[in-house]
Design a protein around this nucleic acid. Structure first.
Lengths: 269, 269
DNA sequence: CTTGACCTTGCCGTAGCGTCAACGTTTCTA
DNA sequence: TAGAAACGTTGACGCTACGGCAAGGTCAAG
């Protein structure tokens, strides 16, 4: 047989067969005078074995090992290993599909924020605060979306829990909205503006103890643990970038808030 | 932030971030005087979105589309498509794992032939015929293993069914063994040997009608449909290779058998 | 001054082939 | 009998999402 004929017979492409030759999986057969490869039934049988093994999902070098080692002992252990691997992949895919199902559900209900797919806990928070209510609020939600993608789920959900409780209390929610408004107000103010310091203190005051605990405690006891929404506090490059995201006066207020909060936790930089 | 800092903040590697720049997924940020890239919070937020999307399993160009298209319409349809894709993968993996489970089972029971993993139907046939009983029998099983990997499951199982019934009948099985022995006997004979023609006729005689029907009918009505165990009959390159796998006298006997069988089906070459 | 931890660009490697490119051979057909 | 169609040959690049290494430049600390 020529290569195309054997390829059709075993259900492979000619390219695949040449590839197997190249890898040494299958020895090159004799050539006809014109240079064409000449295949016999033995090669077809070998290729059929290769095909069965690759269809199971074995890699080509594993196939080579199995073919070389002859007899099923090696085969059995390769198959077992492969099954483990496939089990992992399957679990992985299922987990992703579960997340996808949540997201598709949210998407159909129109709950997906512009930030794209986020955790359900955060999506709920997004639903609670009207999006374009305040520039500062919008920014805050963006920060949360960043946090959402990076923090570990435990801590994340504890923090969302605390925030959710805060939003549930009508009085607290009203105060929060007011604070956002006051932040908006000082967008163009100087850092020395007299409104800055009281705003910082009021911001600190609305942070409940359980939220603060979750923020501080979640940091896994290293150099972080700062109450900034995203792990490292000011002093770290990230913290500076975080503060840079605010207007100067707003940043000063946030800094003031952090000072008060670190005082409350007894944490030292 | 420098690239390592933002990478740590969003949970990516610096290499990945540079890769995203290269692909145009994320614009190159401004540089410091020393050439270092300088990142701000905006980039972190963008990267967090990228990370969420890639973790769902989106390809990077899909991520780019989603980021560019802004807003969830495109996103929703990409997610739905992705879910379809994952569903297919999951089904595929499950099917492979089922086959693997069968094979591991057979392997533990020592039923795996040297041919490696074959379909359950064939494994059963392998179990019925003692492996080294006859050189011709061994060859026949090899041919079946080749057939096993290439034929479509329907036809394959119908044929195995017929073969299994043949093997179930003690008298037929005994006759089959005798035919194998006679094939062995003429391994070194001349094609003109007087034993060849009667052997061919006897070979044809033991093929039951249902097996013949399965063999002929399975060919999906094109140029095949030949009763050779593997699709195309003599005249095709594969058929020649098949006959070449036998000693000359044996090949003559097989040819004789085919002549008789094609006569029985009324099939014309 | 050195060491070490950063950063820079750039190129090779991964798995399993698909897909040209550029060319020779065989076979069918007008 | 010529030309086209359908085979074959080797060789090289492409795909995914980066990892790893090389060969350097930069910066802070001991």
């Amino acid at each position: 047989m020529r290569i195309g004929e054997i390829a059709a017979a075993v259900g492979l492409t000619t390219r695949a067969i040449r590839h197997y030759h190249h890898l040494g999986l299958l020895p090159e057969p004799a050539r006809r005078p014109n240079g064409y490869r000449e295949y016999g039934l033995r090669e077809a049988i070998l290729l059929a074995r290769v095909r069965r093994l690759t269809e199971l999902g074995l890699g080509l070098d594993e196939v080579r090992d199995v073919l070389a080692d002859d007899v099923g002992r090696e085969l059995t252990e390769v198959l077992a290993e492969l099954d483990d691997d496939l089990a992992r992949q399957e679990a992985d895919i299922r987990a992703r599909r579960e997340r996808l199902a949540e997201l598709l559900q949210m998407s159909r209900e129109g709950l997906l924020p512009g930030e794209g797919p986020v955790s359900p806990g955060l999506a709920e928070l997004f639903g609670r605060f009207s999006p374009a209510e305040s520039a500062t609020a919008a920014k805050d939600l963006e920060h949360l979306a960043l946090f959402d993608a990076t923090a570990d789920p435990d801590r994340r959900d504890r923090i969302y829990q605390a925030l959710s409780e805060l939003a549930d209390d009508p009085e607290l929610a009203a105060r929060l909205r007011e604070l956002y408004a006051r932040m908006d107000d000082i967008a163009d103010a100087s850092p020395d503006d007299p409104r800055v310091e009281p705003l910082g203190k009021d911001l600190a005051a609305i942070v409940p103890d359980d939220l603060l605990a979750a923020l501080v405690h979640g940091g896994e006891g290293r150099e972080d643990g700062s109450p900034a929404r995203t792990d490292p506090g000011p002093g770290s490059a990230f913290g500076e970038a975080f503060l840079d995201d605010f207007a100067p006066a707003q940043a000063a207020a946030v800094r003031e808030m952090l000072t008060v909060l670190t005082g409350r936790t007894g944490w030292t930089p």
